[in-house]
Simulated assay, not measured.
Amino acid sequence: MLPIRDHNPSGRTPYVVYALIAANILIFLSYVGIMNDAPLINRLYFDYAIIPARISDGLAFETFVTSMFLHGGWMHLAGNMLFLWIFGDNLEDEMGHVLFLVFYLVAGIGAGLIHVITAPESLVPTIGASGAIAGVMGGYLLLFPKARVDILLILIVYFRVFTIPAFVMLGVWLGMQFLGSLSSNLDEGGVAYWAHTGGFIVGLILCVPLWLKRGGMELWNQTHGHPPHPEAKYPLSRSRIPKIPRK
C-alpha cells in the first residue's frame, strides 16, 4: 500500500517542505555520480552518515543532521519525499514555518539517537530523512487522526486507489516498523526500523503541546479527528483491469 495524497488541504504555502524536498534532491544529485564508486561513496558515508560506534566514542555528532539529507538511491529518495509532501504541509500550516523546521530537525535527531541507543556498537552507516519524516507522521496522527488518505493498492496486476482514515494507514505503518524493530539485525544493515519507530514517537510527543494548545480532547470532540477545514475532494481512479468473477 502506497499513500499518494491526503484530503487535508493546507491553509498556507509550505515553504519549508518545499525547501527540504529541494535540498534533499539537490544533495542527492551532487553525489549520485559516485554511487558505484565504492571508495568514494564509502568515504562520503563515513563523513556524513550516522555510524553508531563513532557516536558512542563521542565523535561525529554533526552526522545526526547531515545524515538526514543523504539517500541510498532514487527509490529511497522518492519514497521519503512523497511522505514528506503528503504529511508535512499540514504540520507546517499548524506550527508555522520556523517552528516546523525546528520540529523536523529535532524529530530527525531524536530518531537518530534512538537508533544509536539500540545499536551502539554498529559500524553500519545510517542515512535518510525517514526518521524525521516518521516524526512528521506521528504529529499528523495526533492532530488529524481521521483525515482521509488515498492509498494505491498494488497486488501483482491489480491496481486500485481507495481512501482510508489517517489513523489506519499510519497505525499499520507504525506497527510494521515496530515488528521490524523486534526482528531486524542492525549490524547487518538494511532498514533502520528503530529510527522509524522512535522518530514517530518523538514527533507525536513533540506535538502534544500544540495539540493541547488547540484544545486537546476538545479539539477532537469539535472536529471528530478530521481536519478543521473543508476536506479536498478527489475522484478515485478505478482499475481498468477487468475483474474475473468466481464460478
Rank of each mutant, 00 (worst) to 15 (best):
M1K: 06
M1A: 14
L2H: 11
L2N: 10
P3E: 01
I4G: 04
R5M: 04
S10T: 15
R12F: 07
Y18T: 14
A22H: 06
L26Y: 07
L26K: 04
L29K: 08
S30W: 11
S30A: 11
Y31N: 04
M35P: 03
M35A: 13
N36G: 05
D37A: 07
D37H: 15
A38H: 03
A38F: 02
P39A: 06
L40V: 13
N42I: 05
L44C: 05
F46I: 08
D47W: 04
D47I: 05
Y48R: 08
A49D: 02
I50V: 14
I50Q: 02
I51R: 03
I51E: 00
A53R: 10
I55G: 00
S56A: 14
S56K: 03
L59E: 13
L59I: 02
F61P: 05
F61G: 08
T63Y: 06
F64G: 03
V65T: 11
V65G: 02
T66W: 10
S67W: 11
F69I: 09
L70R: 08
H71L: 12
G72C: 05
M75K: 10
A78W: 15
A78C: 10
G79I: 15
N80R: 08
M81D: 06
M81K: 00
F83N: 02
F83Y: 06
W85T: 10
I86C: 03
D89C: 05
N90K: 09
N90R: 14
E92V: 03
E94M: 08
M95V: 01
M95K: 00
G96L: 01
V98D: 00
V98N: 01
V98L: 09
F100G: 00
F103C: 01
Y104I: 04
I109N: 00
G112Q: 07
V116G: 03
A119H: 09
I127N: 01
I127G: 02
S130G: 07
A132I: 09
I133A: 06
G138M: 07
G139R: 02
Y140R: 03
Y140C: 03
L142H: 01
L143Q: 04
L143W: 01
F144I: 09
I154Q: 14
L155G: 04
I156A: 08
V157M: 07
Y158W: 14
Y158F: 15
F162T: 12
I164W: 01
F167I: 14
M169Q: 15
L170H: 11
G171T: 13
W173C: 12
W173F: 14
L174C: 14
G175A: 13
M176D: 10
Q177Y: 10
F178T: 14
L179S: 11
S183M: 10
G189H: 05
G190C: 13
V191R: 03
A192T: 02
Y193N: 07
T197S: 07
V202E: 04
G203I: 05
L204P: 01
I205D: 00
I205H: 00
L206V: 03
C207S: 02
L212M: 08
K213C: 06
R214V: 05
R214K: 15
G215Y: 04
G215S: 06
G216Y: 10
G216V: 07
N221F: 14
H224V: 10
G225H: 08
H226Q: 13
E231W: 12
P235N: 06
P235K: 06
S237Y: 12
S237Q: 13
I241E: 07
K243S: 09
K243D: 07
P245Y: 10
P245R: 09
P245A: 08
